[in-house]
Write a protein that binds this DNA or RNA. Sequence first.
DNA 1: GCAATAGTGTCTATTAGACAATATGGG
DNA 2: CCCATATTGTCTAATAGACACTATTGC
Lengths: 232, 232
Amino acid sequence: MTENPSPRLFPIVNADVALFTLDDALRLRVLLIQRANRPDPGGWALPGGLLKPDRDDSLEAAARRVLADKTRVELPYLEQVATFSGPHRDPRGWSVSTLFYALLPADQVPAVAGSKTESIAWVDPEAPGRALGFDHGLMLPRALATLRAKVRDGALPLHLLPSHFTLTELQKASEAILGRPLDKAAFRRQLKSSGDLAAVPDLFVRGAQRPAQVYERAAGYRFGDGHVRNDT
Amino acid sequence: MTENPSPRLFPIVNADVALFTLDDALRLRVLLIQRANRPDPGGWALPGGLLKPDRDDSLEAAARRVLADKTRVELPYLEQVATFSGPHRDPRGWSVSTLFYALLPADQVPAVAGSKTESIAWVDPEAPGRALGFDHGLMLPRALATLRAKVRDGALPLHLLPSHFTLTELQKASEAILGRPLDKAAFRRQLKSSGDLAAVPDLFVRGAQRPAQVYERAAGYRFGDGHVRNDT
DNA sequence: GCAATAGTGTCTATTAGACAATATGGG
DNA sequence: CCCATATTGTCTAATAGACACTATTGC
């Protein structure tokens, strides 16, 4: 059915990433790039790139490599959303693209910069304000929905914050992701009982008010997929 | 771009399916096949096959085609689980495999048959009793977990049943999937309020007891991913 | 009536949300 | 003291689970 002038025996395989972060006003933002190369030069899209079997050990590794081209910061939290496929979603031919979402701590946003040939933009994921190439207009809502589901399930948006934070900051981050206000008392109850947080003894943020306890991720913080991470 | 890519430069792309159903004793079962072809002939695995860009319009279509090779019945409910990838999971080289799970109504199980060269087996997904080839031993628990999460979220195992059924049958099917008993009253409360079911007027199953109301899927039954299906 | 399963009512423990009250700093 | 924000307490509505009760058939 697909009469492609340069037919491929194998589909194109690539990895795309919806990289989320918080801006100065603690609003949820997602990274778009303005493509420099074919196809669709000048068009806006989620960052992504072809899988390189000789360099990547997995699609997730490919996604991390693509992100590394944009930033030098430590690898963010990254999770698979879904895989998109079809003969027409990429003008080069039959393609398969696995979408990931990733979370970048807000204080590392400045490390993400455009290049001489590629501009970047941090946009509202619910209103990107640009037409996105390929089927990225479908991808972005899926990534956002997956992220929100994880936040509701208690997997935490800790990864959008620096390593140390207050409960109010964490609540603001959660509200930014979910797009709605949360109740302070209920939010704190749930976190306290989750065991995912640890208070840092004798560390407080001071201001013109009662000092706020500083927290960090607990040693055995459990990820959304159930696995435990013990490092940073 | 390379004109004639070898399989080493482009990853192998295929689709695998965990096809679930209920056996006579209403136990959850998953389909395994004994492979006839390379690689791993004679080994047990989930049904799957290479994507054929000239014949498939999507990975999901490829999964349905693979299933159609095993059975002639109507296409079952099918949903993506995740995509597995890496240089070593398939002996032929770097490969990408998108896993789906599917639900086959119990009354259509007889339509699934082995071929002269391929045996089939319906096994307990929690204890397949055989070593599975590739990384299918990792895939199966993921598929089961995804299925169970959907059942808990209220998306229903209706697709394991014939088009008409009683609430007790539906409860037994749910219990088989989740692997634990459910409370009758709570189960019925939740279904009644979900709006996913419609009682069939004046249709009852009779036996040596009070007749059971027959139900069918409601017109606007909502799938797990939120989309509405109005056909069968 | 009796057995067997369908279907309902009710109590309780848990939880999310609303909202009020208290705590503790800076000025 | 006053302000601002942190932190905690409490009330309530909604819900899931346990469990018992009633309903309706075949025999």
